[in-house]
Design a binder for these strands. Structure first.
Length: 217
DNA sequence: GTGCTGATAGTCT
DNA sequence: GACTATCAGCACG
């Protein structure tokens, strides 16, 4: 278990969304429940929002019941339900116009893997032994998966990410780290018919060599 | 390894 | 009434 550190300060989030999305790579997402601590290193993010992004939930400029927290202050959580059965976790970023948020698409599991496997439904509740590599590689490699693994539901929508139950820590940032290269690629799950040329915008950022991406860069 | 399909319910038009 | 920033399971080779 890694020793606890201090949560990232709100000033960390008060930057251009693309700068923030890149600097989130390598940071630790930490979740505390009654059962203990879960930790994961962020390896994949996507930017949504800005002056005109047809793929952003905030593109109309007007919040709805669902998207209200996307219009909240930087450093808070935007959690929404997708496909009726999964949640996606976003970090709210500053918005010069409209709203902006960073979708966290994948993390590398670090602490609390047994709890993650159980909440993912990959092991029986009372039969948790040594986890297989194939199980570990399927814990948090997608936005819906990591929300299951971290027990992130819509009850955390709008939460401030400065301490329990959910927060970020400095971790080992990837920006300016010569050992790890950051890739930029097009965002996952969009289609040209609804968002036009935005399907091609390289607004997905990855730690290219990570084994825990939702799909290869 | 790749690719297709069904599940499933909140949200918006 | 249609759509979706997804996933698991299955078929295939």
């Amino acid at each position: 278990m890694k020793m606890s550190s201090h949560p990232l300060d709100v000033d960390f989030y008060r930057r251009n969304p693309h700068t923030l999305a890149r600097d989130l790579l390598g940071r630790d997402l930490v979740r505390r429940t009654d059962e203990g601590i879960r930790r994961g290193r962020i390896v994949e993010t996507e930017v949504y929002g800005g002056p005109h992004d047809p793929a952003s939930h905030g593109d109309s400029g007007e919040p709805t019941d669902r998207t209200d927290s996307m219009f909240g202050p930087p450093g808070t959580a935007y959690v929404y339900t997708i496909y009726g059965m999964y949640q996606c976790f976003n970090v709210v970023a500053p918005a010069e116009q409209k709203a902006a948020a960073i979708l966290v698409r994948a993390v590398e599991p670090m602490d609390g893997l047994e709890m993650m496997a159980r909440d993912r439904g990959l092991v029986d509740r009372d039969d948790i032994g040594e986890l297989k590599d194939s199980t570990i590689g399927n814990l948090t490699t997608g936005p819906g998966k990591l929300c299951q693994a971290f027990d992130i539901g819509t009850s955390l929508d709008g939460a401030t990410l400065d301490g329990p139950p959910l927060w970020l820590e400095p971790g080992e940032p990837a920006v300016d780290n010569t050992e790890e290269s950051i890739g930029a690629s097009s965002r996952i799950g969009l289609n040209r018919e609804t968002v036009g040329e935005a399907v091609d915008w390289p607004w997905r950022y990855t730690l290219e060599d990570s084994e825990f991406l939702s799909r290869p860069g």
